[in-house]
Computed example of a mutant assay.
Amino acid sequence: MKCKTEATFKKGHCIWECRLNTKGKHLETPSFWIRVLIFILFVALPIYFVVIGSRLTLKTLRFKERAQSITGTVVEIIKTNSPADRHSEQFVYQPVFEFPMPDGSVLRGKSASISSNMNYTIGSQHPILVDFDDPATVHTKGNHALIIGVMCILLGGIAAAFGLSAVFSMI
Rank of each mutant, 00 (worst) to 15 (best):
K2G: 05
K2W: 07
K4E: 04
T5L: 14
T5F: 15
A7I: 10
K10D: 03
G12Q: 02
G12K: 01
H13K: 14
H13Y: 08
C14Y: 10
W16I: 04
W16A: 00
W16V: 01
E17N: 13
L20Q: 15
T22I: 15
K23Y: 12
K23S: 14
K23N: 15
K25H: 14
H26Y: 08
L27R: 15
T29I: 03
P30T: 13
P30A: 11
P30H: 12
S31V: 10
S31Y: 12
I34S: 01
R35E: 06
R35G: 07
I38D: 04
I38E: 06
I38V: 09
I38M: 06
V43D: 01
L45P: 05
L45Q: 11
I47K: 14
I47L: 15
I47A: 14
F49P: 03
I52Q: 10
I52N: 11
G53S: 00
G53M: 01
T57F: 06
L58W: 09
K59M: 06
K59W: 10
R62D: 02
F63C: 09
F63P: 06
K64G: 01
E65T: 05
E65V: 11
E65A: 10
E65S: 11
A67P: 05
Q68R: 13
Q68D: 07
Q68V: 13
I70C: 04
I70D: 07
T71C: 04
G72P: 13
V74E: 00
E76D: 04
E76G: 07
I77G: 01
K79D: 01
N81C: 05
D85C: 11
R86N: 07
H87S: 11
S88L: 02
S88A: 03
F91S: 00
F91C: 03
F91I: 00
Y93G: 00
Q94S: 01
V96E: 09
F97R: 07
E98V: 04
F99V: 05
M101H: 11
M101Q: 12
D103L: 08
D103G: 04
G104R: 05
G104D: 00
G104N: 03
G104S: 03
V106L: 00
V106I: 01
L107A: 02
K110Y: 13
S111R: 02
A112F: 14
S115P: 06
M118V: 03
Y120F: 15
G123K: 14
G123N: 15
P127D: 09
I128N: 12
L129R: 08
V130G: 09
V130R: 04
D131Y: 09
D131P: 05
D134A: 10
P135L: 06
T137N: 14
T137Y: 14
V138S: 10
V138D: 09
H139T: 06
K141F: 06
G142R: 13
N143C: 04
N143F: 04
H144D: 13
A145D: 10
L146S: 05
I148A: 06
G149I: 03
V150T: 00
V150M: 00
M151V: 15
M151C: 07
M151Q: 12
C152G: 01
I153L: 05
L154D: 08
L155D: 06
G156L: 14
G156C: 04
A159H: 09
A159E: 02
F162C: 01
G163K: 10
G163Q: 09
L164C: 05
L164S: 01
A166W: 15
A166S: 12
V167I: 02
F168A: 07
F168D: 06
M170R: 07
I171A: 01
I171M: 03
